[in-house]
Computed example of a mutant assay.
Amino acid sequence: MRRQTATSGSIPAGSSRSLRLDPLSLPVRFDAQDNRADGGIRQIELHRERVILRREIGGMRMAVNVRVCDFIGIASRTTDDGRMLLLQHRDPSLSIPLCVGADFDEIEAAASQWSAIFALPQLPEDKSREPSQRRRRHNAIKDRRPKFLARRKAGDLLNEAGNYQGEDEIIARD
């Protein structure tokens, strides 16, 4: 079993300086940029059934083991340098770059290969859009009486004779 490895935190030297992983030669171990990690680098081990992310934050080392089936799909995003292929997770900090390049056809071919290897769907490109308006929720407590008033009975209206409704006039005799 062959392993692809990166020797440093930067992109390895070769015929091209952009990130390109071969989906047919897994497991793969490489370094990727992580703005929140110490040194700005995280190590990624990519297997067919799991992904292991290693990084150090605030001097504390951590390894996060994520199953491939927990990812939502393979996404293609437009960047300043061209296109980037991602293994997309619901938590954006767990998304993993798979391929970066300027050739759109090559990125699409790689996306179909990664999608077949991991048995994940290809996600549509995320266009920059306006965030949707917040949904207004019904507040169940809004119509409730305050606690100190809830212990009291609600008052009844007076009838024409000045008596409370439903009560007879009480006459005290000695």
Rank of each mutant, 00 (worst) to 15 (best):
Q122L: 14
D126C: 07
V66M: 13
S10P: 00
A13I: 03
H47T: 08
D22A: 02
G39W: 07
I74C: 08
S25F: 01
D103F: 03
E160C: 07
P97W: 07
R83P: 01
K127E: 15
R42M: 14
V100H: 07
I117P: 01
S8C: 09
D174R: 15
A161E: 15
R20G: 04
V28C: 07
L19N: 01
A6K: 03
R42D: 02
D168F: 11
I117S: 02
L157Y: 05
L46M: 04
F104T: 12
D91K: 12
L94V: 04
M1V: 08
D38Q: 05
Q33I: 08
S10R: 07
L157S: 13
P23E: 07
M60Y: 06
L21K: 01
T79C: 11
H138R: 12
R61Y: 03
E56K: 10
I44D: 04
Q122I: 15
P146W: 05
D70H: 10
W114G: 04
R152W: 11
D80W: 05
A13H: 01
D31E: 07
R67M: 09
Q33M: 04
R144A: 09
R173D: 14
T78P: 02
Q88W: 15
L46C: 03
I107C: 07
I96W: 07
D126E: 15
L94D: 08
A119Y: 02
I170Y: 13
A154I: 06
E169M: 13
I141C: 05
A6H: 10
P146L: 08
R67N: 10
L158W: 06
A75G: 15
S10K: 10
L85D: 09
R151C: 09
Q33G: 01
R3P: 00
D156P: 02
S128P: 12
H89C: 11
R173Q: 15
M62R: 13
R17A: 13
S95R: 04
R136W: 01
I141H: 09
P146A: 12
S16E: 11
I141K: 12
R134H: 02
I52D: 05
G162Q: 10
E169W: 12
